[in-house]
Write a protein that binds this DNA or RNA. Structure first.
Lengths: 154, 154
DNA sequence: CGTGAAAGGGTTCACTC
DNA sequence: GAGTGAACCCTTTCACG
């Protein structure tokens, strides 16, 4: 698993923003022949640098208009407690992001809901039902300022 | 902008997980001819339901090993204050996500850094330099449990 | 590691129902 | 709205530099 060179970086940058660009166009963009570009792309995919390609959908168009940030504390940090919590949280389709955190709260979640009523249902049926939870704190996004798929590269 | 029907939903679901699938394979998957599928995809893209296609890169492979969640409070909620803050935060390439929030803090950010030293630099040069900030609270992700590109669809 | 050519497959029309 | 066929373009692989 070698370090990506300048051309690899150019390929990755392009694919970050235009994930469905054709190999031929990508090759031209980064100054390679189509075959050379195809081979490099193959290597980048197989090495795990590229984890996948995804269409980003408009939450609004799909009638998901609310984003909640949920802070959660558990009753302890035992391995079994965490494992059980994590297995349960993965089952909730509305949870977009979940991190185990240092600091005041154990987990931070980003949750998508259609509206306040939908969030109430998710909170009742999913979040409150998660095992070992002792504190849940929801706050709501008023506006999305930034949502980048990846970190910018130099 | 008509409501997506069952076939549109199938197209969107597939592209969420396989953003680089060929139109021909997509058509077969959803039970359409290639031309019909291509036409629908065109409509979905132009209507804004599909906001873009992105390669998801391994932060680890690119040596971004740290994720920080940053809570920020401003000195007021005047429109000018928010606008100036948001213009400044958009300039920081390490900020992956930024929401204007209800509740205790005004903004929540997700920030990527290579390591603790890198985060110290970002905090000093970017976050502390943001205008109108009166409180910054960083916590760090110990582990990523979930990172879905989109909300699950029925 | 890059090139060019060739075969196979994909995309996009106009046209039709 | 959906399918068909044909022209054109793209992808992939191979031998070679």
């Amino acid at each position: 698993m070698h370090e990506p060179d300048t051309i690899d970086i150019a390929i990755l940058k392009t694919l970050q923003n235009e994930g469905r660009i054709s190999n031929a166009a990508l090759a031209e963009r980064v100054g390679l022949s189509a075959s050379a570009c195809s081979r490099r792309l193959d290597i980048l995919e197989k090495s795990g640098v590229i984890k996948g390609y995804h269409a980003r959908l408009s939450h609004k168009a799909l009638n998901y208009r609310m984003i909640a940030i949920v802070h959660i504390s558990l009753s302890g940090q035992f391995a079994k407690t965490l494992t059980e919590f994590e297995a349960a949280v993965k089952r909730c389709p509305n949870v977009l992001v979940c991190y185990l955190m240092s600091g005041e709260y154990d987990y931070i979640l980003r949750v998508a809901a259609r509206d306040l009523e939908d969030y109430e249902r998710i909170h009742r049926d999913w979040l409150s039902a998660l095992p070992h939870v002792v504190k849940i704190n929801s706050s709501f996004a008023l506006r999305e300022i930034i949502d980048r798929p990846n970190v910018g590269m130099g």
